[in-house]
Computed example of a mutant assay.
Amino acid sequence: MWVVRINAPERRNALGRPVVQGLQEAADAVAKEKAVRCVILTSTGDKAFCAGADLKERKGMPEDQVREFVTALNRMMNTIANSPKVWIGALHGACLGGGLELALCTDLRVANQNVMLGLPEVRLGILPGAGGTQRLPRLIGVARAKELILTGTRIGADDALRLGVVNRVADDHVAAATELAAEVCKGAPISLTQAKRAIEGGWDLHMEAGLRWERACYDVTIPTEDRLEGLRAFAEKRPPVYRGE
C-alpha cells in the first residue's frame, strides 16, 4: 500500500496550488504501480485533514485564474475518484468544503472522534464546485445531502457514521485506516480494480444493464494468472500470492 500525506499544516492543509499539484502527481504515479492495491490519504498536524480551499490564495486570483484553478482541482479529484486503486481517507479535525469533497473521492473513509465535516460554500457566496453536489447525494441520498449543502451544517463523527459519510470511527484513525487497507490488500489487484469499476459504473443503471456491466468487469479477471493462483491457493489451503497479472 501507499500513504499519501498532505503536508501543509500551517495552512490547515488547505487546497492551494502546491497541494493540488502534489495530489495530482501522487494520484497519477500510484495508478501506474501494478503491485499497489490500496492508498491511504491522510495529512499532517492535528487541526485539520483539509480545511478546504486556500481562501487567502483564492482572494488574490482574478476570475480567469479562479476558473483555471477549479478546473485543475476537479481534474485532481476525478483522478483519485476514478483511480484503479482503492483509496482510503483517514480523516481528522476540520474536513470542510473542498476537504470533504476530497474525502468523498476516496472509496472508504475512516475518521477519528474530533473530525468535523461540512460543505459551507453557500455561506461564502459559492457552492460546492469540486464534486460535492454530485458525490454526496449519491453517497447518503438526495434529501440528506440537500440539508447539509443548503444549510452549510457541520457534523461530527457520530453523525457522519450514522449518515454513511464515513465507514468507521476510531480513536486512531490512521491505524484503523491501515488495518482496513490491510484487509483490502488481501484481494487480487485486478479483482479490486474490476470490482470497483463494476460498482461505480453500474450502480445507477437499471438492473439488466448493471448485470451486463458486472459481467464485462468479471470477464476481465478470467484470463488472469491471479485467478488461477486464487484457485490453487484455495485447493492447497494457503494464502494466495497475487502479482497483478
Rank of each mutant, 00 (worst) to 15 (best):
residue 99 G to K: 00
residue 85 K to F: 07
residue 53 A to V: 12
residue 13 N to W: 03
residue 197 R to G: 05
residue 212 R to A: 07
residue 186 K to P: 07
residue 60 G to A: 10
residue 48 A to H: 09
residue 183 E to K: 15
residue 4 V to R: 10
residue 197 R to W: 06
residue 237 K to V: 05
residue 185 C to F: 09
residue 113 Q to S: 11
residue 75 R to P: 08
residue 245 E to K: 09
residue 179 E to D: 06
residue 168 R to N: 10
residue 244 G to R: 01
residue 228 L to W: 12
residue 42 T to D: 00
residue 239 P to S: 10
residue 88 I to L: 01
residue 21 Q to E: 14
residue 220 V to S: 00
residue 129 G to H: 04
residue 141 G to C: 14
residue 90 A to E: 00
residue 197 R to M: 11
residue 178 T to P: 01
residue 39 V to G: 00
residue 177 A to F: 09
residue 142 V to K: 15
residue 200 E to I: 09
residue 223 P to K: 07
residue 138 R to T: 05
residue 57 E to S: 05
residue 183 E to C: 14
residue 99 G to F: 07
residue 36 V to M: 08
residue 241 V to I: 07
residue 114 N to E: 06
residue 172 D to L: 10
residue 3 V to Y: 14
residue 26 A to Q: 07
residue 136 L to I: 08
residue 106 T to G: 09
residue 55 L to T: 11
residue 213 W to K: 15
residue 16 G to R: 09
residue 31 A to E: 13
residue 72 A to T: 09
residue 44 T to E: 10
residue 97 G to D: 02
residue 38 C to E: 15
residue 86 V to Y: 08
residue 245 E to S: 02
residue 209 A to Q: 13
residue 222 I to E: 08
residue 60 G to P: 09
residue 45 G to T: 05
residue 140 I to P: 07
residue 196 K to I: 09
residue 231 L to N: 06
residue 71 T to Y: 05
residue 176 A to D: 13
residue 55 L to Q: 12
residue 230 G to M: 01
residue 35 A to C: 11
residue 44 T to C: 00
residue 10 E to K: 15
residue 200 E to K: 14
residue 119 L to T: 06
residue 140 I to V: 11
residue 232 R to M: 09
residue 34 K to V: 13
residue 189 P to A: 05
residue 167 N to K: 11
residue 205 L to Q: 03
residue 220 V to H: 10
residue 239 P to A: 13
residue 184 V to F: 02
residue 111 A to G: 05
residue 121 E to S: 06
residue 51 A to I: 08
residue 4 V to S: 10
residue 94 A to I: 00
residue 46 D to M: 11
residue 211 L to S: 02
residue 229 E to D: 11
residue 21 Q to A: 12
residue 223 P to W: 00
residue 86 V to P: 12
residue 122 V to G: 11
residue 192 L to Q: 06
residue 161 L to I: 03
residue 73 L to K: 02
residue 32 K to N: 15
residue 83 S to Q: 03
residue 232 R to G: 13
residue 205 L to A: 06
residue 100 L to H: 03
residue 113 Q to E: 12
residue 194 Q to I: 02
residue 102 L to T: 04
residue 237 K to T: 04
residue 20 V to T: 13
residue 176 A to Q: 11
residue 177 A to P: 15
residue 37 R to T: 07
residue 48 A to T: 02
residue 47 K to V: 03
residue 89 G to K: 00
residue 124 L to C: 06
residue 69 F to Y: 13
residue 158 D to P: 03
residue 152 G to K: 11
residue 205 L to E: 02
residue 114 N to K: 01
residue 28 D to K: 14
residue 72 A to I: 06
residue 168 R to Q: 15
residue 236 E to K: 04
residue 154 R to Y: 07
residue 109 R to F: 01
residue 43 S to I: 05
residue 18 P to R: 02
residue 186 K to I: 04
residue 168 R to T: 08
residue 198 A to G: 02
residue 47 K to Y: 06
residue 98 G to N: 09
residue 73 L to F: 08
residue 190 I to A: 14
residue 22 G to N: 01
residue 202 G to E: 00
